[in-house]
């Protein structure tokens, strides 16, 4: 018996062919809708500030004999900042197919380097943003048009609780009743508990009969989306699920630069409390938003996961040429 070789790809030739075909259809989808394909840098001095996203860095050395010395650039966790700068500069409908990088993310559905499709359309709001994502899902996957389900309705349906109001004690109760393994370090952050219940109880049921778009997230999980005042106030954020797998994340985009400055501050404080490095709060995105980002919606989609679902594959490595452990 020969030892398995590391130089070969983990995806079969058939899957690679289907992958290429899917990419053609995706480009066709955007071209027929008047979107311009753009190509923005992977390296930037700016990076998204997210509590749970850890960007990788690259040092642009000036002396090749000291490769660790020089300014730090961030490998982009998504092309969001650069694409919004293009929108603020007058482009109306843009999409991009690019590699994105996220430190520490590796598993059945994660690879630290992956392919992302991201698009923006000026004039879109929550509803039309979800509508465009629904069109794309219906066109590229054989599972029909997504149903729309609010975050609140999903929690009500699976767990009979109101995610916007439930306290930690009641969520802990539910987790215990359902025999969920609870991490020792979970603490008393409501969002950590919501995420645990989402991952353990809600997500597995999403998108089973047909794709599901989950929307109206808790206001403190807004990231870069607009908040719609309530009660309860909700983040105009949406995610597409197919067969329990999260495929895309979209926002009715936040336009207010000062609100973003405030969120950046809060997020950095949380990162510090988590023992993580803070990330630069100044960015050219803020300058672009100060200059005026037109109202729009945008969505990022994990292309590798799309290929996985389209080819009935079991894991990301079956659709990647060389996943990280043989990259």
């Amino acid at each position: 018996m020969s030892t398995p070789s590391d130089f070969r790809p983990t995806a079969t030739r058939e899957v690679l062919q289907q992958r290429a075909h899917l990419l053609q259809r995706l480009r066709q989808f955007f071209t027929t809708r008047g979107f311009l394909e753009v190509d923005t840098p992977l390296l930037s001095t700016d990076t998204v500030i997210d509590r749970h996203l850890d960007p990788l860095t690259v040092t642009l050395f000036s002396d090749p004999r000291q490769m660790q010395t020089g300014p730090t650039y961030w490998l982009q966790t998504s092309p969001e900042f650069a694409m919004k700068r293009l929108l603020a500069s007058g482009l109306q409908r843009i999409y991009q197919v690019t590699h994105a990088f996220r430190g520490g993310e590796a598993g059945r559905y994660h690879n630290p380097e992956f392919t992302m499709v991201e698009w923006y359309r000026i004039g879109d709001d929550l509803e039309s943003g979800m509508g465009l994502l629904g069109d794309l899902c219906e066109e590229l996957l054989p599972y029909g048009r997504p149903e729309l389900l609010s975050y609140e309705a999903a929690f009500e349906r699976e767990l009979a609780i109101d995610p916007h109001r439930a306290d930690v004690a009641s969520m802990s109760n539910i987790a215990q009743k359902r025999n969920i393994a609870i991490p020792d370090s979970i603490g008393s952050d409501r969002n950590d508990w919501l995420n645990l219940l989402l991952a353990e109880c809600v997500e597995p049921s999403l998108g089973q009969d047909r794709p599901t778009i989950l929307f109206d997230y808790p206001a403190d999980q807004a990231a870069l989306s607009q908040i719609r005042q309530g009660p309860p106030a909700v983040a105009e954020r949406f995610e597409l699920y197919v067969r329990g797998i999260e495929l895309a994340n979209g926002y009715h985009e936040l336009l207010d630069a000062d609100e973003l400055r405030r969120r950046n501050r809060v997020t950095n404080e949380q990162r510090q409390a988590d023992g993580k490095a803070t990330l630069p709060e100044k960015s050219r995105l803020l300058e672009a938003m100060d200059a005026g980002l037109p109202a729009c919606a945008g969505t990022a989609l994990g292309f590798d996961r799309l290929v996985m679902l389209a080819t009935n594959s079991e894991s990301l490595e079956q659709v990647l040429t060389f996943p990280i452990d043989r990259a």
């Binding site: 997210d50 393994a181 991490p183 950590d192 995420n195 989402l198 991952a199 999980q221 990231a223 995610e239």
Partner: peptide
């Protein structure tokens, strides 16, 4: 490795006790 949306990462593990052979589910 599971990571819902923009949430925190969870590692769902199964661990086998090497003395007793019992299996533990831990997140």
């Amino acid at each position: 490795f599971v990571k819902p949306g923009k949430g925190n990462a969870f590692y769902k593990c199964k661990l086998r006790n090497l003395l007793r052979n019992t299996v533990l589910d831990r997140t």
